[in-house]
Write a protein that binds this DNA or RNA. Structure first.
Lengths: 212, 212
DNA sequence: TAAGAAATTGTTCAAGCGTATAATAGTGTC
DNA sequence: GACACTATTATACGCTTGAACAATTTCTTA
């Protein structure tokens, strides 16, 4: 039988492709659909190659989870401008594409369901979560103090927990059933709710630039 | 070989036990750990019996998901008393045991990750979600109107979406990393945040009775 | 250009999967 | 108390899984 054509790729590219294929499988068929063979087919290689790059299936899943978390948080953590703009952009980014879509949720939920089972995934999760909330807490502290409002650590902590929860929940609702909401309804609800929680109104500005 | 002892149970009880065993398996090992054989072992029966009660593995999972949703929502939907008490109890119930614990989250996340893959699960999910938000919307409308506040449908809808999101998000945070928060910190944060969102303070009352 | 190292393929294996079905053991009925 | 009924066990089947490994191709470099 004719052997398939043989393409040798740089290590970084191949690893990236394999992880990407893993995410595709999970998004399409769930964690159980991400078998070594399916991943290989998706990546256009044979199953054996995966073991060449990853010690085991567990390891490729862990790498994949790191990528998922990074994609969910990196955009929001790179906001720039004055304190108000950064806070506002942070909110908007987390509730619009590409952070908020059903694929993201699918991936996130698949891994979350294993966080309580797999200690390695739990560690990866905790790191991402704390870093995200920390970013939010700093944004709040900066914004509140520039507005001359109470920015005590205790208040910032509580606000960060509440607003983080609100964003998580709205993100979830939007991803799970986006068609139940108007075009930018969730973003508007988030912004006005957070204004109310802070007791300060966020002035209207353009949508954040979608640069990388 | 000696045949194992043979216990014949009433249909309802056996179905219940099998579903319970399924949930145990999922909570402990994730969806992929819920194999027909594992479920059977957990339930103390042989694998074949599962097919006697459920047409296929898909079917037992669907039934199990219905049970999960019911447990997450039924307590909160049965609040009683005046409008303020009902709203307050609704909030507290959703953020304390047994609704808020890591097992609940584990189960919820396992199924959520398949909602986007399995249309049957998606239907079950949507029904539960809409019913939950509807309950909250009515609680808000009742409470706002007894307080003489604006209770227009538009305002109630937006508040229900925001507060539902907030509760979902805090529930998630509490389940995933309860030890990061003080004893009833999340409940307090939820209550004060919701007071702020409504512009009305919820008077202090005892914790809701834990009756069935 | 030959040799050795590394990447990739193709094949194999034991274990576990969901499902099907035949045999057995309780239950209720006349 | 025999008989039908069905809940339950036990076993078997075909398939997929993660993993292991030998064979093959490409790359590097001397």
């Amino acid at each position: 039988m004719a052997r398939r054509t043989f393409h040798r790729a740089p290590e970084a590219e191949r690893r990236h492709d394999l992880i990407e294929a893993t995410l595709d499988c999970i998004a399409e068929y769930g964690l159980e659909g991400a078998t070594v063979r399916q991943i290989a087919i998706k990546a256009g290689v044979t199953a054996g190659l995966i073991r060449h790059y990853f010690q085991s299936k567990e390891h490729i899943l862990q790498e994949a989870y790191r990528v998922v978390i990074a994609r969910l948080t990196e955009k929001a953590e790179r906001v720039s401008g004055d304190a108000e703009t950064r806070l506002r952009d942070f909110i908007v980014i987390n509730l619009t594409e590409p952070v908020a879509n059903s694929r993201s949720l699918s991936l996130w939920a698949s891994f979350i369901s294993r966080v309580s089972v797999d200690p390695e995934l739990a560690a990866i999760h905790r790191e991402g979560y704390l870093s995200f909330r920390d970013t939010l807490e700093h944004l709040l502290a900066d914004f509140l103090s520039t507005q001359g409002a109470d920015s005590s650590p205790e208040r910032c902590r509580r606000l960060a927990i509440a607003i983080n929860g609100l964003l998580d929940g709205l993100w979830l609702e939007g991803c799970l059933a986006g068609e139940l909401f108007g075009d930018s309804e969730l973003v508007e609800i988030a912004l006005t709710s957070i204004e109310t929680l802070l007791g300060i109104s966020l002035k209207l500005v353009d949508a954040p630039r979608a640069d990388g």
